[in-house]
């Protein structure tokens, strides 16, 4: 069963053509990364998928229903953790549910525990480190009722070591929940390590120039980074990205 379908999305801001016929599908339980240079309109694409911006042309489909321009149907984790400073961790985590009109505190507590944040339920966001805050934001998405999660460069603000920890953590917790994930990043290694499939975006006007199926079995370990196969695919993707950059400049 196909979950999220993005069909022929076009968008321009005035004379600037931002999205040029983007089409792809995220299947049930699949982890798909959108890889592209900064400023390639990835975040704009997210706001279209999230329904807060309408495309000039094209449509978004979820489980066979047209959801173009409808909000609240995907779960979203922004670039910065975006936690509310006046809410405790548990209340922040429950925000996504609250917006949909219910609160499942038991599930939230279990998830906080699972994320290694036990004891922080009643703390405020400023008491947590950057990585911890990002984990809270991700739990908030997981607990939200929507079955597809969109992550917008969630680890870009973290240092390298924390980033690796977070990637491992994300994979382990994702494998338990099997929600579909659409992950935006500009980091090739991150995309390779996490995804089932990688879609490479071009610079503006953005379109999908290549698609890579990531062959590595799960569960994946950090050692994967050092294997020849990993480096081989990384080089291939690098050339695709690089090639399109050279073409444009």
């Amino acid at each position: 069963m196909s979950k999220l379908e993005v069909r022929q999305i076009h968008l321009s801001f005035g004379n600037i053509h931002v999205l040029n016929g983007i089409s792809f599908t995220v299947h049930d339980g699949e982890f798909v990364s959108l890889l592209g240079p900064s400023g390639s309109g990835k975040s704009t694409l997210f706001s279209i998928i999230g329904g807060i911006r309408r495309p000039d042309r094209g449509s978004i489909w979820l489980n066979g229903k047209n959801i173009t321009g409808k909000t609240g149907l995907i779960s979203y984790t922004p670039q910065t953790p975006s936690l509310m400073p006046w809410r405790t961790i548990i209340d922040n985590v429950l925000l996504g549910q609250e917006i949909q009109g219910y609160r499942d505190e038991k599930a939230a507590l279990a998830m906080i525990d699972r994320a290694g944040l036990k004891g922080y339920e009643n703390s405020y966001p400023h008491e947590l480190s950057g990585g911890m805050k990002q984990r809270v934001a991700f739990i908030r998405s997981l607990l939200s009722p929507q079955s597809i999660i969109c992550l917008d460069e969630p680890f870009s603000a973290l240092d390298e070591l924390t980033r690796m920890d977070m990637q491992n953590w994300l994979l382990s917790i994702w494998s338990e929940h099997q929600k579909s994930v659409l992950f935006v990043t500009h980091n090739i290694e991150e995309a390779l390590f996490l995804s089932d499939r990688i879609l490479v975006l071009s610079e503006k006007p953005a379109r999908i120039t290549a698609e890579f199926h990531v062959p590595f079995p799960r569960p994946r370990k950090e050692m994967l980074y050092l294997t020849d196969e990993f480096i081989h695919i990384k080089r291939e993707i690098y050339h695709v990205l690089r090639g399109q950059l050279v073409k444009h400049s």
Binding site: S47, G50, G72, P78, S82, M84, L95, G96, I99, Q100
Partner: peptide, 22 residues
């Protein structure tokens, strides 16, 4: 905070929810 507002909108919050919660 505009990021938070963005999040609330994506999550399907009504304008009343955005007002009172954010």
């Amino acid at each position: 905070d505009q990021e938070l507002k963005h999040y609330m909108l994506m999550a399907g919050a009504s304008s009343r929810q955005i007002f009172w919660k954010l």
